[in-house]
Simulated scan of single mutants.
Amino acid sequence: MRTSTHRRKPVRLAIATVSAAVGTAIFGGAVPANADIVTAQTAGVDESATFVEAATGTADIAATVAAAGTPAKAFTATGGGSVTVTAPDRANGTVSATTGEGSSFGLSLPGAEDVEGIKAGTGTVVYTDAATATDIAVQPTTNGGARTLLTLKDDKAPTTQRFELHLPVETEAVDNGEGGYDLIRLGDDGKPAITVGTIDAPWAKDAHGKDIPTRYRLEGNTLVQTVDTQSNTVYPVVADPKFDWGIVTGTLYFNKSETRKAVESGGFLTAAAAMIPGPGAPSAVTIAGWSTMAAIAQRHGKCLKINTWLKPNEYSGGYCR
């Protein structure tokens, strides 16, 4: 057994400059002996939330409720049904998304410290100093996913972080050719795999809103993000892995055997087309175009891929075996 949607571009908003004094004026009157510590902690959480929300915007942050074991749980609806997104109680926990049918995807935060998550701002859960000079934040989003944000506070912060992917059985991550990954559910009885989630291409920005190069690589089920800071980088830097879960795209992936079938049988492609959410069956011309692309991919030692807009392409790696 092998184990382990409509895609959006990463957010590109300028980051506002955040004062280190955020939250320091909200306390007054008589205070307990540990007030300085409490005030500093609150200010740090508020500052971090303000900073990342300036980078991401707040329009798609989902409304959340607190529940046992989590500071924030969101109940969202997608084109594929309902999804419940849960932020972990601690920085070394796992962000999870579960569909109404029970299919679940998780992404472990890279926090080395056992730091409590606190909801602040518009709905951002912040884990301050979860790793060396690094805050982590989680934002459940309205489309059945979540952003997991790294705030690198200074040049002592590690520039490579590792996120463990918790994939359902018969699901795997495949490079989508655009800097991110499609999460595909393997088909039964020789059917192609269909995309049931996505990990968007990463982005990173410094304190002035300047783009910082960043990239992913996949090591087994570990998503590794590297941020290429430089000597002139202005800190803090925010970086964002984002995922969506649930059927939010109909992209099909064919392995080599299925690609061969696509060359040989228009009926096989017609049956595969029924897996793609859309207005109806594709035309004979469309099916012929898919078969032609399958033959091209086969000659190149690659595999067929058909996106949700019925456009065929070739790909390699991952499921193409």
Rank of each mutant, 00 (worst) to 15 (best):
A40Y: 03
K9M: 12
R12I: 10
V38G: 09
D182C: 11
G80M: 06
V196E: 02
D211M: 14
L109T: 14
D188H: 13
I194M: 14
A59V: 02
T17V: 04
A72H: 08
F254C: 03
L269M: 09
S291I: 04
R162V: 01
P241Q: 08
R217G: 01
Y315K: 13
A297S: 03
P282R: 14
G80I: 01
S257R: 11
S96K: 15
G190R: 14
N92K: 13
Y235Q: 02
P110Q: 00
S265H: 06
E178R: 15
A49G: 11
G220D: 09
I15H: 14
V38S: 10
T5C: 03
R321I: 07
L152Y: 01
K305I: 00
A74I: 00
V125E: 05
G266F: 04
A67N: 10
Q139L: 00
V83Q: 14
A49S: 12
G317K: 10
S48H: 12
Y319N: 07
K153Q: 10
E113P: 10
S108N: 10
L149S: 15
D135R: 12
R185H: 05
S257Q: 09
A68L: 00
R260K: 15
E314H: 05
F105P: 05
S19P: 06
E113M: 13
G44R: 09
I118V: 15
G187R: 15
N313G: 14
A130R: 14
V38D: 05
P71M: 04
V38L: 11
R90E: 01
T148E: 04
V11Q: 10
S19R: 15
G190C: 05
G267T: 01
Q230H: 15
T56K: 15
A130Y: 09
T160C: 08
A77H: 14
A272C: 08
A21K: 15
D60V: 05
T151I: 12
L167G: 08
Y315A: 09
H6T: 08
T160P: 05
A239M: 08
A137E: 07
P71N: 07
V285C: 04
K261C: 01
P88F: 13
T50P: 07
A288T: 01
D155F: 13
L152E: 02
D114N: 14
